[in-house]
Amino acid sequence: MKIVIINYGAGNIQSIRFAIERLGYEAVLSNDVEEIKSADKVIFPGVGEASSAMKMLKATGLDTVIPILTQPVLGICLGMQLMCKYSEEGDTTGLGIFDVDVKRFENIVKVPQIGWNQIKGLGSKIFNDVKEGAYMYLVHSYYAPLTKETIATTEYGVQYSTALQKANFYGVQFHPEKSSTDGAKILENFLNL
């Protein structure tokens, strides 16, 4: 199985690579369009600020490639947010895969949300063998509201989409690579799709 982690200069991709290695697979880091297109599974990571990450995607032409991929694609954290239509962060137009606009948490809660929170309403094969209410590690100031594409929800002042799916595209707000054994299970489920 060929696993490509899209390497466009945004974030802690080493941890994702290590997590995949702990599952017994190898992953390639790449920003090469042909290499990404030829992968069996594509992971689209991202940590940092939305508008600058989007600029980096555009600079490599990946903004037009990712939305037309046909193999399973997993966006993680900012990767998931960039797969949405729009983000309030940096007034950023996203890739438009998920039909939802990303918003900032209101200041009724501490922002960023940092730590372990529960995922509920699990409705996808990537959550096989993961218990309702499992804890995942999250670090974020912006969130995707609930939508018809929601496959898991989390509560932090508001109920929001902690995972999204549309056809072959999956997005998770949490960091499966940092979420202990349950996170590893989700990553493994994705790789086994």
């Binding site: 080493q14 960091h175 202990s180």
Partner: peptide, 29 residues
């Protein structure tokens, strides 16, 4: 980062963007 599946923070003697860049690139959260 290779062996541990929870987040971690690194501190001590960090004084520049370059210092942080190399730590994050190597797997610090």
């Amino acid at each position: 980062a290779a062996q541990v599946n929870i987040p971690f923070t690194v501190g001590g003697g960090i004084s520049s963007v370059e210092d942080v860049d190399i730590l994050l690139q190597n797997g610090a959260d």
